[in-house]
Amino acid sequence: MEPLVEVRELWRVYPMGDSEVAALRGVSCRIDAGEWVAVMGASGSGKSTFLNVLGCLDRPSRGSHRFAGREVATLSSDERASIRGRELGFVFQSFQLIPRTSALENVELPLVYSEVPAREQERRAREALASVGLAGREHHLPSQLSGGQQQRVAIARALVQRPRLLLADEPTGNLDSRTSVEILDILAGLHRSGITIVMVTHEADVAAFAERILTFRDGEIVSDERPEHAGASRSVAP
């Protein structure tokens, strides 16, 4: 079976004055559909750059990045935008909701850019909000919601296109521990429903929810483990 994501000899080099700094140094790995992968490492280890490349937000300087059987490293910016809008979902540490814009409109955003018929947009956005427990808050503005609620809106927005891959960058980094568990529970539910998740975190207890842990150091993968207690999430969820 073809992996969902396959990267080979991935380099990402930034010019720094006269010299160059490599954030990724020949990273290779494959992620199969349905996996929940946590990416760990110290800051500057290249884990965020790795996530940005997987999310088609960044392009590798060298190497191959295949997503769902297509080589995407060489796609145009419009083609990458189209993949982001239709097949990927993002959850960020700082939620990244558009301010002064209702929860419903925030969730509708990917549908608008993918030109989903207008009538379907609202129905699907409401469904997505309901699935993260925010039915009835459709017309709240981000400023009227708590941090956990905002992150749930962001998850609803990431889900509304039924993406093949959900990318989460420190999804619980700005939340207290109780709310963090709520968010991780939602991710666990998504994982069970078959969505592939790649999640960057530096907290071991958050990473423990995943079934596979990639550890980055100096732009390289130094370990790729499948801990014994993999699937801890299953025991957490009620």
Partner: peptide, 16 residues
């Protein structure tokens, strides 16, 4: 700027 970044992340193309 951030709003523009968010829109791009959720699939907005340059022309949008």
């Amino acid at each position: 700027t951030r709003e523009i970044g968010i829109r791009m992340a959720v699939g907005a193309r340059e022309r949008h």
